[in-house]
Design a protein around this nucleic acid. Structure first.
Lengths: 349, 349
DNA sequence: GTGAAAGCGCTAACAG
DNA sequence: CTGTTAGCGCTTTCAC
């Protein structure tokens, strides 16, 4: 059995409660006994037992993470290792530990969350995705269990602390950027429409086009999973069109990579024939050919702020609801170029 | 305050211990009282408190995960989301939860592990990397705290349960595959030599060449971080050689992607001018151009077996040490082709 | 400034 | 088959 507070107390000739106070650095303990106790702790190699402490305190100093269902390819996205690092650093700074749950089905995930929450395993929860009509979120909200979401909650977003990018604005910006390059036919390839982020990016794209006085063409908008095959089919359909787009807004780097390949197979070159801009700016964005112009959404900070704000909330229960917007930035690489007005149109003009 | 075992006991008119037994599904309780108790639990919405249970049992049913330092780009590898899924499923099946730690420096990671271990937060640990001379591993081993490693331990590999691929053999196989395609000048681009996996793959490569009667050329072997820039420099050096390789074994898909790009910039085509084979077969391997021939190491299973074997070990403390080898498989795509014997050599022969 | 004692919620002998 | 009791290791009143 490990060394306990009692062992320390005995060695230091004090009561267990005194040792406890020394651990908490209670100011009412004299420096002298503190010294004595600390020596005893060192000598015995004492480490406080978190479990016991949690039970006594009714608080675990553990944050629960909910990852999206493993079914979705989304979960294979290099996005996650990076949020995790951000989360981890944010949590460690304040001496919180991280526990995670995920599952194959929605039901499994939900069960996992219930275990964490009702089982008292965690003090708060961080949702690493935001879906339309999410059972988990509803549950947490109904119990008013402390949680924050990474992304924008589908509903009640003013009542839920969340950290997100302004995806709507970012999508508007990239679309405007493309418009500014002279493109008039701009397509959108998005991921799963159940994810709020997809919706936001789509809306931003549409807004930019409308503001610029362009019609929205349904044929230009394609939704698929964040996947290669998705990208492939989508792009095929698009390019069959009478008037295929000359630029594409793609909701995710990984998907853009798929698009890039299909285009290459079809002998369409980027950016000469078609420009592409995507989101997230993960490592592979700079490793693709051509390197992708991509919106850096600051994934690390997304995680980091999520951890911090949850902790803040835990230590300050009646803090107001917060919406934290992490800035984004378009990282220009080589996948976009000015629209070359083609011969036919030129003569028409 | 949440509903406790006592509340249930009161409502069901039994002793708390009886309720506890019902939870554990103790066979010595009559079906009748079990029914009664269960009803009371439902009625009150009772959920056992894991913390209290952990304290009483001296066991948390939590597995601790140690991720590699966030400093390394390795940690951005899409490898991780996939192991995590495997781990998670393995753990959930047996009702274990997952807690994770990581850090920026080796020291920080070490501290995190100590917290988990000495703080009694976890029952066992899974190391998600294997480094040469790892402080964490030494610590765990010295304390004989239950742990398994994903990868091959640098030392004492017969004394440590681990789940790994046979990377040595896999590397031999890919090298032989390349030899079989007629390549005689085969280079190796590896990652950080502190990682055991890099070493193993390098050794396998060397062995294959030696077995085939080829000399090892130091200039053909390059080590860099698993990174784009790494790939770029490495490939530049290689291709400057008088007799540049006609095939490359690359230790990681992500790195191979970088290599592919640099080659493209240099107007060297794959696989016509040079063949490339890499490891891991993550999603992007099939999305690169050309799609990469890559060794599928079955990442999901790596994680899954790791979780299972740790749990097995926890529930069966004097189980023997195990070495679990996850099978690999070369997935042939389009980055390798037969060596085209060039004109000059042909006339020379 | 420090000690004694109760209790966090659950489990596990030991009785009966 | 079920109840009683004593902890698990720590925190926290309440005394002194």
């Amino acid at each position: 059995m490990a060394v306990t507070i009692k062992d320390v107390a005995k060695l230091a000739n004090v009561a267990p409660s005194t040792v406890s106070r020394v651990i908490a650095n209670n100011p009412r303990i004299s420096e002298k006994t503190k010294q004595k106790v600390r020596e005893a702790m060192d000598q015995l190699g004492y480490h406080p037992n978190f479990i016991a402490r949690s039970l006594a305190n009714q608080s675990t100093r553990v944050l629960g993470l909910v990852l999206p269902g493993s079914a979705s390819t989304f979960s294979q996205n290099p996005f996650f290792p990076t949020v995790l690092r951000g989360l981890s650093e944010g949590a460690h700074e304040k001496q919180y530990a991280l526990q995670m749950t995920t599952g194959q089905s929605e039901e499994e995930i939900f069960e996992g969350v219930v275990q964490m929450v009702q089982g008292g395993r965690v003090d708060g929860i961080i949702l690493l995705y935001s879906k339309v009509e999410d059972k988990v979120m509803n549950y947490l909200k109904a119990r008013s269990f402390p949680f924050v979401v990474v992304g924008k909650p589908y509903k009640y977003s003013e009542e839920i602390t969340h950290v997100d990018n302004d995806n709507f604005r970012a999508a508007k910006e990239v679309t405007n950027y493309l418009l500014g390059l002279g493109h008039e036919c701009i397509g959108f390839i998005g991921g799963n429409l159940n994810l709020v982020v997809t919706v936001e990016r789509l809306l931003g794209y549409e807004k930019a086009l409308r503001d610029a006085g362009h019609d929205l063409k349904d044929e230009y908008i394609i939704h698929e999973e964040f996947l290669r095959e998705g990208g492939r089919e989508a792009i095929n359909e698009l390019m069959q069109l009478g008037h295929p787009p000359t630029a594409l807004v793609v909701a995710d780097d990984l998907m853009a990579l798929g698009v890039l390949n299909t285009l290459d197979e079809m002998d369409i070159s980027v950016p000469e024939d078609i420009s592409i801009i995507s989101f997230n700016n993960v490592l592979l964005a700079e490793m693709s050919r051509p390197p992708l112009t991509s919106v850096d959404i600051n994934i690390f900070n997304l995680g980091n702020e999520a951890a911090k704000s949850l902790i803040q909330k835990l230590e300050n229960p009646n803090d107001p609801i917060k919406r934290i917007i992490i800035p984004h930035e378009i990282v220009k690489r080589a996948s976009c170029s000015k629209r070359e007005v083609d011969h036919k149109e030129e003569t028409e003009a």
